[in-house]
Design a protein around this nucleic acid. Structure first.
Length: 570
RNA sequence: UGGGGCGUCGUCAAGUGGCAAGACACAGGGUUUUGGUCCCUGCAUCCUAGGUUCGAAUCCUAGCGCCCCAGCCA
C-alpha cells in the first residue's frame, strides 16, 4: 500500500504507437534545448491562500518540464503585497507541493528577497528618465488613464526632473508620504492601446509590516515590476503563467529591455484549469469557507490540495489527471469525471480490499450453530497476490447491506430476496427463508440458511449464483463513523451567468453514517486508503479519526452499473 | 469605438496542405467469488461563408461566437 515510485515520466500526451505529440510549451522548450539552452522554470504562488487543483496543473507543468529536460524548478513566493500575505500560507503551500511529490531542494525563493535589488533598479530607472513619482490620487489616476476606447492623458507629474523624482522616491521610502499619495510609475505611453503600458505603477506605499521583511519597507513593488526581474535574477528561462497575463507580456518584456540583466526569461501563457461541479477561484472558495458551507479549507469536499488529501485523493492521481488534461490555450471546463477516473485508476491498483457495511441489515443463519464461529481467508487484492490476505470471522449473526436485499426482486436483480440465493464474499452461499418485520412494517432481520459445502464462497455443485454481497460478523464488527462525500455542487458550472453559488450547492454533499467494519480495520492508520468492496474507496480521516472512534471518509464510489440500470428503468 | 487571446467528438486534446490520434463520458458485448477491475466493439469531416490548390482542420479573405484587460491585486 505503498507507492512512492513515480510512474515513468509522462512527457507526451497519450497517443498510439508511441507517436510523440508535445504540447505547445514543450515544443518551444524542445526547440530551445536543441539550440543549446538550459531549462529553468519556477512555480510562483502568492502566499495569500491555499493551493487548489488549479495550482496543481501549474506545479505539474513547471516541475514536470524541469524534470524532463534536465533543468530546475524554483519555488518562489510572490510576496509583494503585505496586505494579504501571511506565513501560514507559506507553510501550507510548501506542504502541499511536497505532498504532490515535488522537491525544490535549496531553490526556495521569495520575491521579498529582491526588494533591495528592485529598489536599486527603480532608482536606476528614475535616473534613466524611465520612471517618475506621480502624485495623482487614485481617482485622478484612473481618470488620466482613459479607457478601452479613449487614450489616456499624461500625468502633470510626468515631466519632473530626475532630481525631484529621486528626492520624492526617497521620501516615499522613508514613509513621509501617505498611502495613495504617491506612486512610482514607469514612463511608457499613455496612448498605448494596451492599457498595461499606460504608465503602470511600479512601486506603491503600503504602510504595513511584511511577513518576512518586517518594518524594513513601507513601499512595495507591484507584480509587474517584480515578476520578470525576479525571473531574470533566478535565471528562469521559461516563465509559465496563465492566459490572463498575456497582455502583460509586452510590459514584462519592456522592463527587461530597459535593464541590463544577466538573463532573459520568456513568458509563455497557457489556459488555467477549470473543473466541472466545483469552483476554483480564490474568492469563491473563501465564500464557501466563510459562509460555513464547508468545514474549512481542508474540508474533503473542497478542491484545495489539503481538502483532496483529506478526501483520500492520491497525489499520483492528481498528477496523472493534470497530465491528461494537457496544456493548451483554449479555456474550457474539464469534466470532474476525468479526475475521478484518475483517482479510481490509481486506487484500484493500490488500495487493499476490505469489507464494511454502511447501512446494516441483520442476517441470522438459522442452520449455523449458536455460539460457534470460524474464519475465512480473504485476499487483500484480487489481481495482486503480493498484497496478501487476512482472516475474516464468520458467525451465526451477520450484517449485510440493507440495499442488497429486496422483498420483491426487480428485473435483473442478482442480489438477495425471499427464496433467493447469494454468495457472501469469500464465505459461503446463503438462501433467504424468512423476512422478519417490526410493527411498523420495517424489515428487522433476515433468516437465512447456509450451505456448509460452499465454504469459501464456491458453488459446490456448479449451480449458478450471480449475486455476491459483502458482510460483516455482528459480534466481531467494529463500529465506525463513515462520511459519504459527494460533489459540492449539482450543476456542471456553478458560476455560469454569474449565478449565486449557494443556489447550486448540493444539499447531499455530505451524509454521515454509522457503519460496521470487519475487525482487521481496527488498526487502519490515519490517511491509509482502502476499498470497501462493492462500495468505494475510503480513507481514515487524518483529523478526526481516533483508534477507539474511527472515522472514514469516502474518497469516491466504485462505478455502479446496477445503479445505472435502475436509473435508466425509472 | 480599443488591445490581447481562443474556436477540432458530450468534455479535455492531437493534428503545422495529403485520406480527423488518444483519454474521459456514453452505448453494446465478453470474462468475473466486487453489478468493481480487465477485454472487445461502436461513437466527429474540424464556428460560418467564400477563395487558393490535384488535394485544406491546416493557406487567404470576410464574417460569427466566446474569454481576458480600465487594482497603487496577483
Amino acid at each position: 500500500m505503498q507507492q512512492s515510485k513515480r510512474e515513468s515520466d509522462v512527457r507526451t500526451t497519450e497517443s498510439d504507437a508511441g507517436a510523440e505529440s508535445l504540447d505547445f510549451i514543450r515544443q518551444i522548450v524542445t526547440d530551445d534545448v536543441a539550440r543549446g539552452a538550459k531549462v529553468a522554470t519556477r512555480f510562483p504562488p502568492e502566499p495569500n491562500g491555499y493551493l487548489h487543483i488549479g495550482h496543481a496543473k501549474s506545479i505539474v507543468l513547471n516541475f514536470g518540464i524541469a524534470e524532463e529536460f534536465g533543468g530546475t524548478c524554483n519555488l518562489r513566493f510572490d510576496d509583494t503585497n503585505p496586505t494579504t500575505e501571511e506565513v501560514e500560507y507559506v507553510d501550507s503551500i510548501k506542504e502541499d507541493v511536497r505532498w504532490l511529490g515535488y522537491d525544490w531542494g535549496e531553490r526556495e525563493y521569495f520575491a521579498s528577497d529582491y526588494f533591495d535589488k528592485l529598489h536599486e533598479l527603480a532608482v536606476q530607472m528614475i535616473r534613466d528618465g524611465k520612471a517618475y513619482v506621480c502624485e495623482l490620487s487614485k481617482e485622478e489616476a484612473a481618470e488620466f488613464k482613459g479607457d478601452y476606447y479613449r487614450p489616456g492623458r499624461e500625468s502633470p507629474y510626468r515631466a519632473r526632473s530626475v532630481e525631484e523624482n529621486l528626492a520624492l522616491f526617497e521620501r516615499m521610502r522613508r514613509g513621509e508620504l501617505d498611502e495613495g499619495a504617491a506612486v512610482l510609475r514607469a514612463k511608457i505611453d499613455m496612448q498605448a492601446p494596451n492599457m498595461n503600458l499606460r504608465d503602470p505603477p511600479m512601486v506603491r506605499v503600503i504602510k504595513r509590516p511584511h511577513h518576512r521583511t518586517g518594518d524594513t519597507w513601507c513601499i512595495y513593488p507591484t507584480y509587474d515590476w517584480t515578476h520578470g526581474q525576479s525571473d531574470a535574477f533566478e535565471g528562469i528561462t521559461h516563465s509559465l503563467c496563465t492566459l490572463e497575463f498575456e497582455d502583460h507580456r509586452p510590459l514584462y518584456d519592456w522592463f527587461l529591455d530597459q535593464l541590463a540583466l544577466p538573463a532573459r526569461p520568456r513568458q509563455i501563457e497557457f489556459a488555467r484549469l477549470n473543473v466541472s461541479y466545483t469552483v476554483l477561484s480564490k474568492r469563491r472558495l473563501i465564500t464557501l469557507v466563510r459562509e460555513g458551507h464547508v468545514d474549512g479549507w481542508d474540508d474533503p469536499r473542497m478542491p484545495t490540495l489539503c481538502g483532496l488529501r483529506r478526501r483520500g485523493y492520491p497525489p499520483e492521481a492528481i498528477r496523472k489527471f493534470c497530465e491528461r488534461v494537457g496544456i493548451a490555450k483554449s479555456e474550457g471546463v474539464v469534466d470532474v469525471a476525468l479526475l475521478e477516473h484518475a483517482v479510481r485508476e490509481h486506487l484500484n491498483e493500490t488500495a487493499p480490499r476490505v469489507m464494511a457495511v454502511l447501512d446494516p441489515l441483520k442476517v441470522v443463519i438459522t442452520n449455523y450453530p449458536e455460539g460457534e464461529e470460524e474464519e475465512f481467508e480473504a485476499p487483500y487484492h484480487p489481481q495482486d497476490p503480493s498484497y496478501g490476505s487476512r482472516k475474516v470471522p464468520f458467525s451465526r449473526e451477520l450484517y449485510i447491506e440493507r440495499d442488497d436485499f429486496r422483498e420483491v426482486a426487480p428485473r435483473k436483480w442478482h442480489r438477495l430476496s425471499p427464496g433467493a440465493e447469494v454468495r457472501l464474499r469469500y464465505a459461503c452461499l446463503i438462501r433467504c427463508v424468512d423476512v422478519i418485520k417490526g410493527d411498523d412494517g420495517e424489515i428487522k432481520e433476515l433468516h437465512c440458511t447456509w450451505d456448509p459445502e460452499s465454504r469459501g464462497g464456491k458453488s459446490p455443485d456448479g449451480r449458478r449464483v450471480r449475486g455476491t454481497s459483502h458482510w460483516v460478523s455482528a459480534n466481531h464488527a467494529v463500529p465506525a463513523t463513515v462520511r459519504l462525500y459527494d460533489r459540492l455542487f449539482n450543476t456542471p458550472n456553478p458560476t455560469a451567468g454569474g449565478a449565486d453559488l449557494t443556489a447550486s450547492l448540493n444539499p447531499d454533499s455530505l451524509e454521515v453514517r454509522q457503519g460496521m467494519m470487519e475487525p482487521s480495520l481496527r488498526s487502519a492508520a490515519p490517511g491509509s486508503r482502502w476499498q470497501f468492496e462493492r462500495l468505494g474507496y475510503f480513507t481514515v480521516d487524518s483529523a478526526n479519526s481516533r483508534p477507539d472512534k474511527p472515522v472514514f471518509n469516502r474518497t469516491v464510489t466504485l462505478r455502479d452499473s446496477w445503479a445505472r440500470i435502475e436509473r435508466r428503468n425509472s
